[in-house]
Design a protein around this nucleic acid. Structure first.
Lengths: 152, 152
DNA sequence: CTAGATGCAAACACTTTGCACCCTG
DNA sequence: CAGGGTGCAAAGTGTTTGCATCTAG
């Protein structure tokens, strides 16, 4: 059994999905998708844009925003909004899952997926008490990653 | 054993805390705190402002923001940021706890606190796997409240 | 009295939108 | 070669800030 798609497999799936819906695969768009699925640190729009500029120097921020909006329409990207601090994106695992957010260095990583089932059970239990029908959920843990914890 | 402070007890505690730190208790400020602890639906700044205007018609939005910022400094209000949709505030239970957010009517309510211990345990387990030191957390459930679920 | 609070408007950060031009399919 | 995509700048949203005026203690 395969535990997780490779970034390139994921990229192919996204490209196929867009193509199937009649969207064009422009070089900029492909580059944005590639950056999104290869970056494990849940990039924000600004850092995606920087990456794309290296390859396509005229790419605008608006194009990055529009491409992400397109992926959101198809439920293919998970948006982690942080108010005034902007949003970070997970293009690898679009289903809800917990995130570990380092308040010092800003890194965001996924915990091991082994606890996912337990989280879903807890979510359903919390909701069930009051007849709430859950559509989605979000669990964020804020703190210090192991690297930051051991550094002055 | 008392399960939860009454809103008025909570208000007194907040006023005492601010007074102890040398802050002035202006009528507007007291009104904002009162609105905050009496509103169980996690109000946003705009709705707090509307409430205050009824009593003090010249109150500005900036004053509401500043008062909330003050409470945040002392960890006496829980801010639930929702990106472009603005923030909602919980002045009754400033410690992290789950929220049930209705995507139809916008209501936000707390589930029964009985599951809190289990959530904390799960949080610590998810973090422990990778040596992450949790400072805080946030669990939001999005869906339909029981009223909205049974209405066309 | 005087430090701290208020209220207005301008400034801000992130995101979205309008529109002329461009290029994929 | 037609309709979707790009890129620029302008508009929007919620929030913050500067500063003159006011007021609680």
């Amino acid at each position: 059994m395969q535990l997780m798609e490779t970034p390139d497999q994921r990229l192919s799936a996204l490209l196929a999905r867009l193509r199937a819906h009649g969207h064009r695969l422009t070089p900029q768009r492909v580059a944005i998708l590639r950056a999104l699925v290869h970056d494990a640190n849940h990039p924000n729009v600004e850092s995606l844009h920087q990456r794309i500029l290296a390859e396509f120097p005229t790419t605008s921020l608006a194009t990055v925003y529009k491409t992400i909006a397109l992926l959101k329409e198809y439920g293919e990207v998970l948006e982690l909004g942080f108010g005034e601090l902007g949003s970070r994106y997970d293009g690898r695992r679009p289903a809800p899952h917990p995130h570990l957010i380092c308040t010092r260095c800003g890194a965001i990583r996924d915990p091991d997926p082994s606890g996912d089932a337990e989280l879903v059970a807890l979510v359903e239990r919390l909701a069930g008490q009051t007849g709430f029908a859950v559509q989605s959920h979000r669990l964020d843990l804020f703190g210090l990653c192991s690297a930051c914890r051991t550094t002055s």
